[in-house]
């Protein structure tokens, strides 16, 4: 098992697990009510985390097996 792949569960825990605590209007961040900011931030972080997994996965693959886009 590639340990870093467990990172993929972080967005689910952060986004959903945080909802009961982030369920508030203030402080406004970037003009957004806090709850909307919270879920939006996790959308962006999901992309970042999946990118990290992707890069680590690619690094482990033998060069010859890499496919061209």
């Amino acid at each position: 098992m590639r340990w870093y792949r467990w990172l993929a569960v972080v967005p689910a825990i952060g986004m959903l697990g945080g909802v009961p605590f982030a369920n508030r209007v203030t402080p406004y961040v970037l003009g957004l009510p806090f709850l909307l900011f919270w879920v939006t931030a996790w959308v962006v972080l999901t992309s970042v985390i999946m990118w990290i997994i992707y890069v680590l996965d690619r690094a482990r693959e033998p060069r010859g097996e890499r496919e061209r886009p």
Partner: peptide, 18 residues
């Protein structure tokens, strides 16, 4: 605010799609 759920489910599904 309940509409925000629409933003969340797709995002988590993409993570799973990997």
């Amino acid at each position: 605010a309940p509409a925000f759920y629409i933003l969340c489910y797709g995002t988590l599904a993409y993570g799973m799609s990997y």
